[in-house]
Design a binder for these strands. Structure first.
Lengths: 236, 236
DNA sequence: CGCGGTATTGATACCAATCAAGAGTAGTGG
DNA sequence: CCACTACTCTTGATTGGTATCAATACCGCG
């Protein structure tokens, strides 16, 4: 993991949605004004309400973005994986992070100051278009979830959470696809607006039915068809 | 209303979020490649799944943006008011509108083709930043609603819908603030993921309590404090 | 070995959906 | 002008999915 930091080159940036379509020299510029940091597990990158100073992205690892209520209630907005940016919208709106970001495994972060980002956009407007595309895609996803939450039952929503996570960050094995973010029952519940108890009941039931297996907060989907059926079946 | 079309000048654009910060000559360019249309009440501007061809904005009136399930279930994503853009995200993502847009009152729309928009952005990159700001703000709002839906009760959610609509488009009168979008009980219900029946019961109860009045689908908030209390009270 | 965080599982309560019926209200056309 | 129709709104009765309350079990770790 610390070797990754050593091998970090402008080419690493080429695959990031934020810098798609930029020529090599531009990537070098981007690299030149970036700050790379190692984030040990459970590091808080920023907290809700804090003044936004930087645009962030992950090189490696996973971060949980979560929003809290005035009372304790939390909602997991999304998990950020390698190559994805986060904490950037605040720079363009009111300057305060609307959620908190915590590394859920050892991770590596790259970030830019607000001034540096604006400067880069000025010289490479493509970056602004990339941001529009990224934010637009997320807007859609969140609207999708909003509709799900309004119209689907808990079982469907949890099934969809699993499918979404598997698609976003999952590696196929001999016995199914394993989601590489460590997921507590609480995380699952907070991703779909359910209680930890209901999530636990359902996941345990699915495990007994052979649809999934969970060990040490790692979830493996063994029967995609079964999970997909639950996700789409309006009666469940 | 038809006079508005006649008096339409580049200055009209200056107040739109999309073109904030642009100098007059740029606004003239924007105007030159725009198409202005009158939308009679109930006109469908685009339907869900349709290929996105244009970037839209409202000069006057109101449009409802709603997303449908595979089965009939609908969710009202937002109401668009004068000066607000809509149907633009699709141009930057997969090219398909994720929702439908319908004028709920007689309205005037202005729009640009995808090519024209890209061309304008190329010459005036500020537009791209404006889009980021607009979409970023909406992303936040939707995330906010997502959390509400996950953690708040129906009464709170409906109260918040009223407050949000009053803030977005409401004019103060002697007896309170009237929301200028015509709202059916169904609209209210679909904005917060409830059934029309529950929405009706609550609104009627609030009307009896003197918190609001409704006549011909026009809602007036008479006691802001009362509505705000319901919005924040976790027991309701 | 005990301890904090996580997970399971049963019993109960309750909010809101669903089922069901009827009462305004607006627009249409004879 | 009035019947006819469609749509919105109201209101009652019942059901059921989940939250809530409560207790116990598990597991890695100091």
């Amino acid at each position: 993991m610390n070797t990754a930091s050593a091998s970090l080159t402008p080419e690493t940036l080429a695959g990031m949605g934020l810098f798609l379509g930029l020529p090599s020299p531009a990537l070098a510029e981007v690299m030149a004004c970036a700050r790379v940091r190692h984030l040990p597990k459970d590091t808080t990158v920023f907290v809700q309400g804090e003044a936004a100073k930087r645009c962030h992205a992950l090189i490696e690892g996973h971060a949980r973005i979560a929003q809290s209520d005035d009372d304790g209630a939390q909602l997991v907005v999304r998990f950020i994986g390698p190559g994805e940016m986060f904490g950037t919208v605040a720079l363009f709106t009111d300057g305060k992070y609307p959620a908190e970001a915590v590394a859920v495994v050892d991770s590596i972060e790259i970030s830019w100051t607000e001034a540096a980002l604006y400067d880069l956009i000025g010289r490479h407007p493509q970056i602004a278009l990339n941001i529009v595309k990224i934010i637009g895609t997320r807007l859609r996803e969140v609207q999708e979830r909003l509709r799900e939450l309004a119209t689907q039952r808990v079982a469907s929503r949890i099934a969809r959470v699993l499918l979404r996570l598997a698609a976003q960050g999952g590696h196929a094995g001999s016995d199914g696809t394993t989601i590489d973010v460590p997921l507590t029952r609480k995380d699952v519940a907070e991703m779909c607006g359910a209680t930890l108890h209901t999530a636990s009941r359902l996941l345990t039931a699915w495990e007994k039915a052979g649809l999934i297996t969970t060990r040490h907060q790692r979830v493996t989907i063994r029967k995609f068809a079964g999970i997909r059926r639950i996700a789409e079946d309006p009666s469940h």
